[in-house]
Every structure is written in C-alpha cells, then in structure tokens.
Design a protein around this nucleic acid. Structure first.
Length: 130
DNA sequence: CTTCTGACA
DNA sequence: TGTCAGTA
C-alpha cells in the first residue's frame, strides 16, 4: 500500500466534521456504516473516527442517491467494486476472460440499478477491468 | 459541549 | 430518517 493510500485511510475525523463536510446527518452516516458502506474506526472513547476514504464514499453515496438509486442498489455497486478488485487480485489464476467478467457484472448491475443500459455501460466503462 | 446506543410518541 | 433519552 502506498503512502498516499495510507494517508487517505487514516481515521482522524469525528462525526461532527464529517457531517459538515458531507451535509449528511449523524443518523445517515451511522446508517451507511450499518450497511457496511464505510468502516470508521473507534477511538479510546468509543467515538467513530472517519478517514478521507470514508468521506469520499459518503459523497459518492449522496450522488447515487440523487440519481435515484436506492440503498440496495448502492450496496450492489460497492459489492461489484469488491468483486472487481478480487478479480484483479486473482488475475493469475483467472478462469474467465475479462469480457466474461464484464458481461456478468453488467447483468448484475442492470438487474438492480434501474438505470438505462447506456448509463450502466458508462458506469462499467469507467470501472473497466483490464 | 459532542457522540453513542436504543427506541418510537 | 427524525428525534428524544440517558450516558460516557
């Protein structure tokens, strides 16, 4: 992991700061954590401490929400990203071609996003494997 | 004063 | 999701 990635992973912001930076309520921020979309650490006093990465995700969630995607859909999107990373990590022992993976991801995404094929393709292209 | 968990008039 | 309670 690079130094830059480590910095963005440092949990240093209390929820109050995150609220101001994202315009989300504490209730919403904690709810998204329950949905495993963000993983803030706890300090000595059991207070949640958020990283720059957590804040980025929160901002992305806001965008997806404003695009009309529900929580289930958003969770699916992040699950797809995890699968994409795993696929990349296991590229050595891959049994499927990138196009096979791409087709599977697209079908899953279309099934839950409620977005048009055009928009879905745009999303997939931005996160293309390979 | 800020944040946390649990609960719902 | 808002909000109130009782803490830490």
């Amino acid at each position: 992991m690079s130094e830059k990635e480590l910095r963005r992973s440092r949990s240093v912001f209390p929820i109050g700061t995150v609220m101001k930076l994202t315009d989300l309520t504490a209730r919403q921020i904690r709810y998204y954590e329950e949905q495993d979309l963000i993983h803030p650490l706890r300090n000595e006093g059991n207070r949640r401490m958020y990283s720059l990465n957590d804040i980025d995700v929160l901002l992305e969630i806001k965008d997806y929400l404003s695009d009309g995607i529900n929580m289930a859909g958003i969770k699916r999107i992040y699950e797809l990203q995890e699968n994409k990373e795993k696929a990349r990590e296991q590229e050595v022992n891959k049994v499927m071609t990138d196009d096979d993976v791409r087709k599977i991801l697209q079908d899953e995404f279309l099934a839950v996003s409620g977005l048009s094929a055009k928009t879905a393709n745009s999303f997939l292209n931005q996160n293309r494997i390979g």
